[in-house]
């Protein structure tokens, strides 16, 4: 089991209130495959530094997940297929690998 940090940028047309439930929905695989969600942080609407798919804004969310590498690969695949997700970034956050080594 490994600790991952997943940053998700969602479509700004989504209602702010529906963000949390839809995130839960997206993260379904983690629970199914016996991983655990440590922390969900919704940053809310933010201006993007550059346009992504013609959007100037995005809803940011940072999720801390502990799961198997295969699970995170599946999560990554599912999120990339979802059209409400503008961008995803998965980072390893293991205590063993320091932030700077793990960041590469």
């Amino acid at each position: 089991m490994r600790h991952y940090e997943v940053m998700v940028i969602l479509d700004p047309q989504l209602d702010e209130r529906t963000v949390a439930p839809s995130l839960d929905n997206l993260l379904g695989v983690v629970k199914q495959q016996s991983g655990s969600i440590e922390k969900v942080e919704v940053w809310g609407r933010r201006r993007l530094s550059y346009e992504i798919n013609k959007h100037v804004e995005g809803i940011y969310a940072v999720v801390d997940v502990i799961c198997e590498p295969a699970t995170i690969a599946e999560l990554d695949r599912q999120l990339s297929l979802n059209e409400t997700v503008l961008r995803i970034k998965v980072m390893r956050r293991d205590p063993g690998t320091t932030v700077r080594r793990g960041a590469a």
């Binding site: 940053m7 530094s49 992504i52 995005g58 940011y60 970034k89 980072m91 700077r100 960041a103």
Partner: peptide
């Protein structure tokens, strides 16, 4: 040099998620 590299990697990661610009 070590920390400069970490900063550079962090900036590049940050650019990927549109927190920082590639060019402004």
């Amino acid at each position: 040099s070590q920390h400069q590299r970490d900063v550079a990697v962090a900036v590049k990661n940050s650019r990927e998620v549109a927190l920082l610009p590639y060019t402004s």
